[in-house]
Amino acid sequence: MAGRPLIIDTDSGYEFAQALMLIEGCGLFDIKGICTVFGTAAPNRGAAHVQFLRSICDGKWPVISGSEKALIVRRKETRTAADCSVLDELASGTVGPDLADEHPWDFIYRTAVEQNGEAELFCTGPLTNIAVTLIRHRDLPKYIKRITIAGGASRRGDATPYAEFNIYSDPHAFKSILDAGFKQVDLVDLEFCRSAHLTVAEAGNLRSLSADNPWKGLLEKTVVNGSLRNRELCARLELDSSEAIISHDAAAAFVLAIPAAITVSSVYTMVEQRSELSGGRTLFDFGKRFTDGPNVRLARYTTREMFSDFYFRCLKAYDRRLF
């Protein structure tokens, strides 16, 4: 049986590598292509990472390099080169020859139309590519069954006290998605990671993966030892970084794959675009006190054990592929 058709839009990084491992490993999806956007890595650099990750998955999908900057805002760099150094090293020399010769906005729309309304979008970076697609092709929402976004913060942010990096990087793009009339917008905010993360002990189990597992080397280097970003995220989420390993993108992939395992709140969501202090902050009207009907399904909670079980089942699937 064919998997659910999926278009991915990402800014790359270690967290996305884990999300892709889950999406391919769970066997539920038919990836139609991956577009890259500025954010954690520049889009060309991100495309090189994705090409490398594609080789791990033995995938055939096209990789498309996209927007290099936000629609309107210009932010200072808030991510460091260390976020991608291992991927840079592994992916060196892979960029270029087989990069798809098409803009991501045209690719996304064309693919969505071909899938007759069954295509899903999975976004783990700033949402600029999707916003440009909406500008160019206003009827995109009718061809998209569901859009799942790793973004937003219902409590603390990671770019500013309140704003999450992906939304902070291009708040106008997120606003255009909120206003576009998509049938289902699932938002996986940072707070959700409090219930969807690995423990350090579980991450240690990655060392005992089969030597033939294609993810072993990358995950050992990037997940087992933790990272500066993990320490920062744990501090923001009031988790102990000696106990928790967080991947926002992997948590979003879990929501994408197993929606039945998630408690959600349908809520009217706003994004601050003007403020100097609060730009990119997502605001949620949980009490329905200020606004009318909901425009987003916000992932609120899952059990950490379900997430962990899903993570390792997906990872083990790559062992079986070798036989």
Partner: peptide, 19 residues
């Protein structure tokens, strides 16, 4: 803590940086 003075949705928010 600073007060947001120019937000569209966040004006008057006491922007609180716990970190």
């Amino acid at each position: 803590v600073e007060v947001d003075l120019n937000g569209q949705y966040t004006r008057a928010c006491t922007v609180t940086d716990e970190i």
